[in-house]
Design a protein around this nucleic acid. Structure first.
Lengths: 123, 123
DNA sequence: TAGTTCCATAACCTTGTGGTTACAGGACTA
DNA sequence: TAGTCCTGTAACCACAAGGTTATGGAACTA
């Protein structure tokens, strides 16, 4: 049985969590939540060279957290948050250890997981 | 004021996500969800030396994900999952990008967060 | 006391990570 | 065509990560 929909790619959890472990990359993801952005736009707020940012984007891309487009000379990055669901799903197994306030979420989450596993293409 | 309960230590997210990025450490956490365990008990299922496991435990401890006890010669490790809430809270900002199935969680989660911030010591 | 078990630490090695500068190449601009 | 902008890649460096073996110390056992 196990988890069939979310948290299926246990393998990818390594890459996802590792990608999220860097504050620059988390900031990039937050920025991309507001819409896609070119490498220069992404790099602007950081005191860091453009190649460094390109490397971070590569890490995020390998984790499946972003996608790259091609718009003439620009390679805009676009948020692709689905792998986060796998991360949250894994963490969800520990919900009962966080705080009893979250216990109420447990049944709801399971219902939603079942629904997603049955019907949803989620991507 | 800021976020007092969940997601308080943005700093610590680095350590938490980094700790979770290793499959051995995730397995250790899963094992500890069933109850505290000594180093040898933890190390048993892994094809890995005891010092290697000790190192992993140190990483988990620095991330705040486990605590160590002292029971005679044993140093049992105990799950301490609160930092996971910070991780989930950060990831929660992206919920709307995962799947529309999870939209329903949004308001509920916020309510719970407010309640936890007000009253709960969560520790 | 002597031996054994449990664990931490030290020293070391290999690989990965995060940063740099230098450069190349595609696509606009004049 | 020449120049400039945007981006990726290569080469390099410092350091952290994950593993090993060796060792030492505290506590139980005989």
């Amino acid at each position: 049985m196990e988890l069939s929909g979310y948290a299926a790619g246990n393998q990818n959890l390594d890459a996802v969590f590792a990608a999220l472990a860097d504050p620059t990359r988390r900031a990039i993801l937050s920025r991309l939540a507001a819409g896609e952005a070119s490498v220069n736009e992404i790099a602007a707020p950081f005191e860091m060279s453009q190649p460094a940012v390109s490397k971070h984007l590569k890490v995020l891309e390998r984790a499946g957290l972003i996608e790259r487009d091609v718009d003439k000379q620009r390679r805009p990055a676009r948020l692709k948050a689905e792998p986060m669901a796998a991360a949250v799903s894994w963490l969800g197994e520990f919900k009962r250890f966080w705080s009893s306030n979250f216990d109420q979420l447990d049944s709801l989450l399971e219902e939603l997981k079942k629904a997603a596993t049955k019907g949803a293409g989620n991507g």
